[in-house]
Amino acid sequence: MRYYRYIGTRVLWAFVVAFIIVTITFVLLSMSPDPSIQQAATQAALEGGDPQEATDRQEKLRGLDEPLHVRYIDYMTGIATLEWGWSEYRNQPVTKALWGSLYYTAQYSIPWTILTLLFGPLIGVYSAARMYSWKDHVVTGIAFLGFSIPNFFFAIVLLLVFGVWLDWVPVAYRTDVPVVSLENAIQLALPVFVLVTGSIGGILRVARNESAEFQNADFMKTAKAKGVSPLRAYAYHVMRPTLVPLSTTVVGQLLAMFLGASLLVEVVFGIPGLGRTTFDALVAQDTNLVLGSVLLFTVIGVIGNLIEDIVFTIVDPRISYDDR
């Protein structure tokens, strides 16, 4: 029962955090000049009109002449009701533009996350079990390579080798192929591979080092004395405690990749996903779309941390959820 109350509080906190972030965004936004007003003023001046009058008109049009608290309430209701405004650059509602990009981002993000979460801990624990053997060294080497090589550079090299020289994959991303099709799988193989190698390294190292500690723990001797097979001992007795410290790093690692590296990878591969949309919106000074992207990333970040908090208490029963 206490446990459900803990989850309830955590969910509530997630809303509070999201609320605070949205408010900060609003404050920053209200303090910065609106490009459309400057544009209107410049336009008026060029056409021989009164820049001040044009500014006022534009402000009125956008509701900026209202007092701050009215604008704040408007802004918050807009966010809550998913009316995130009109994207000038995309010429469509912001939500629709974001939804369209999320569709492409999800196509590589979901396989990438699953593969990382599946193989990171597995290879890490395997590597610890064979510590200092040549297999361990190979795994460690690949992990460091993937971790240290810049994703966009790796992506370009792979594209050059497999796309241009070998001609196994298309160089340009095609949006007209069906989601579940061999063509789509082939064109997503490289971006997924690049992202997995980039994110798996850190997770693999943490899994390896943590499980190296647990494979020599006292309870492993107990397990062995009980007659537990080595495979079962690793799958249950080592993997579970390893997941505790791992769960704290995984979410941060994946989110960092999601926000940063995926943009570069999207640009290199020409995928019209979230990162690409955000980037274009920034360049085009499309305030509404930028704001929408920030909100979306906020939501994803908050949900990720919420999952981390919950997973943490499930895998380690010693973590108390009283008074929190």
């Binding site: 006292d218 001797k221 107990t222 004395a225 579970r240 405690p241 505790v244 895998v315 029963p317």
Partner: peptide, 15 residues
């Protein structure tokens, strides 16, 4: 053949 060790060596993650 069963073993008991010094300091009960149970796995802290399982009941």
């Amino acid at each position: 053949i069963a073993h008991i060790f010094q300091n009960s060596q149970l796995n802290h993650c399982y009941s």
